Amino acid sequence: MQITGFRVYQVDLPLREGRYSWSEGKSVDVFDSTVVAVETDAGIVGYGEVCPLGPAYLPAYARGVRTGIEELAPALLGADPRRLLVLNDRMDRALKGHPYVKSAIDMACWDALGKAAGLPVCELMGGRYADDVTLYRAISQRPAAEMAENVAAYRAEGYRRFQLKVGGNADDDIARIRAVAEVLEPGDKLVADANTGWLTHEALRVANAVRDVDVYLEQPCKSYEECLIVRRATSLPFVLDEVIDSVGAVLRAAADGAADVVNIKISKFGGLTRAKQARDLCASLGIAMTLEDSWGGDVVTAAIAHLAQGVPPELQFTSTDFNSYVTTSLAAGAPKREHGRMSASAEPGLGIEPNFDVLGDPVWRC
């Protein structure tokens, strides 16, 4: 099987809540997502998606995805999409860095491999541990009372894990954490995610002020070294996210005892192939994981579900269903939340069928 062409689609994903806000005053109203179709001479088409969380979150931006694919795709014509390691090496030789550009292509090739084999992606990745995976709900940054109300509402929908967006004024964030903690019930888990928004002294203030609260601290500061200072100064469980972008980063965190949980975002690693490598390494090291991506719609949500199904249940901290956050459906067959959980499709590949009435015409093809 050989790759014969690419189609690239752009689609806007408006938020159900109207706006998503996180640290340092950052916010997004409409997400700009890119869907890639990888065509083959066998008549099989694989689909992938990548959706950066705006241009000010990670070194990634939506138009950069499409520009990067225009640069990269011609070098992949004739490649076998089923040979994922070979394909990733070919992408790295053709384009240095820019893992988020490669993510949707790699995802689409996993979809094509699954369709060719007649198996779901999760089975090709090693198997499905359980029937479903646990989801978290991200709580957009707002005044403390509003965030507590949002948590209570999402609890009623079946969620039991909540990622509270903090990383603003330390006093406000302390109030946010305490207000939300008051509405939780036994068995719930609360994560205070600063998304790199605090300076070290602010993170230490918050950690000290909420030391009596059952809460995880996530990525308080920009650099790994700053986060490690905070980690070593608190007994609260600790999550690393933005600085976990490679197998090497996982190994470093493990050696330093820098985190109890790490977040593996598919596009940050460059696709499912390398995200799977990090997943399996964490499983070998006994590190709990959140399996997710920066953002996305139905295709990304499907990929997250397949990746997460291969995590031993005791290490599967949580995942997310991004398609429930947005008003636009890109594809049929994507996972749907049931009581705070979701399950990967049993159909071949990712198990999705794109909605071309929504995608429209390709913005680029070759």
Rank of each mutant, 00 (worst) to 15 (best):
D214Y: 11
L76K: 00
L285A: 10
H98A: 14
L164I: 15
E157D: 15
R142T: 07
S324E: 10
K336A: 12
G197Y: 12
A42Q: 14
M342W: 00
D298M: 07
T234H: 05
L307T: 05
Q163T: 12
A117F: 09
T301A: 07
E226Q: 09
E123V: 09
S345F: 02
I69C: 03
W110H: 14
I139A: 06
E185L: 10
E49L: 08
L251T: 10
A130W: 00
A112M: 08
L190W: 00
D321K: 00
D80M: 07
I174H: 02
A145S: 13
L190P: 03
G248M: 12
E202F: 04
V247N: 08
A175N: 03
C282E: 01
Y61V: 08
H201P: 11
D89P: 05
E182Y: 09
E185F: 04
A175Q: 03
A194I: 11
I3F: 02
G187N: 12
G296W: 01
C122D: 05
R365A: 15
V239S: 00
A308T: 01
A104P: 05
A156Q: 13
Y47D: 12
A145P: 03
C282L: 05
T134A: 06
S103E: 06
E347W: 12
G5K: 01
Y57T: 15
A175D: 12
R93T: 15
D29E: 14
F162T: 03
L236H: 02
